[in-house]
Amino acid sequence: MPIQYYIALSATLFCIGIVGVLTRRNAIVIFMCIELMLNAVNLLLVAFSKMQPVAAATNTAARNAANVGIDGQIFVFFIMVVAAAEVSVGLAIIVMMYRNTHSVDVNFLNRLKN
C-alpha cells in the first residue's frame, strides 16, 4: 500500500483528536482525544519506518537486512509505554477530580486561575 494512505489516515485521526480536545468539555473525552492524537503519530511513525528504507536503500543487501525498518517501531513501543504511564496518572487525576467536584467538566477547573 502506498504511504499516502497511512498519512491520510493518521492526519484524519489527528484532526479528530484536535477537534475533540478543542470542543469537548468532558475531561475523559479530552483525554481520549489526546490518546487519539498520540496514536495518530504512532501510526505515522510506524508507517514511515516501515516504508522509508524500502524506498531509500540503494542496494538489495541493505534492503533485505534484518533490522531494516525496526528503529521507528521500537521508538513507538517506548511511546506506548510512556503513554500507558501517562494514562494511569491522568486517569488518577480525573478520578480525584470527580471525587472532589462530582464533575468531569474541565471548565469547572477555571477556578484554579484565581
Partner: peptide, 12 residues
C-alpha cells in the same frame, strides 16, 4: 484569557 482551550486553538 486563562481559557486553556483558546490557547490550544491559537496553537493549532
Amino acid at each position: 484569557s486563562g481559557q486553556v482551550g483558546s490557547y490550544l486553538l491559537f496553537m493549532v
